[in-house]
């Protein structure tokens, strides 16, 4: 009997939860805000679904009901991707070590 491909995806999902668990516990508390903004940016990888939906329109009707939702979702996800990564970058640039160690 063959294994349902769903089981493979479920395995990936559950293993990823464990990876997430251990990786996130090792994040230093002072970087919790950048953690939130970067998780925000990466969860916008949902844009792949939006692109598939948007490209599904044919040349006669680029904008049919389904692809319009795709196009709007592209805008929403793109705001998040660019906004999320850039604001994270901006925050991380600010974290500096002591420069003048006077001793």
């Amino acid at each position: 009997m063959e294994i349902d491909p769903f089981i493979f995806r479920l395995s990936i999902f559950i293993l990823s939860i464990f990876i997430g668990y251990y990786v996130v516990w090792s994040v230093t508390p002072s970087l919790h805000t950048p953690l939130m903004s970067v998780t925000n940016a990466i969860s916008s990888v949902i844009i792949v679904g939006a692109i598939i939906a948007a490209l599904a329109g044919n040349s006669d009707s680029i904008f049919n009901t389904s692809s319009i939702f795709g196009f709007i979702a592209i805008i929403l996800a793109a705001i998040n991707i660019f906004g999320g990564f850039l604001v994270t970058q901006r925050m991380l640039q600010m974290y500096k070590k002591k420069k003048d160690k006077k001793k």
């Binding site: 990823s16 939860i17 997430g20 996130v24 939130m36 998780t39």
Partner: peptide
């Protein structure tokens, strides 16, 4: 899961557990 897309499944699990831990 709907789109059968590994990148989304992994990311969703990461973000989901990250938020839960926080």
């Amino acid at each position: 899961f709907t789109l059968e897309n590994t990148a989304l499944i992994i990311t969703g699990a990461l973000v989901g557990s990250s938020g839960a831990i926080l």
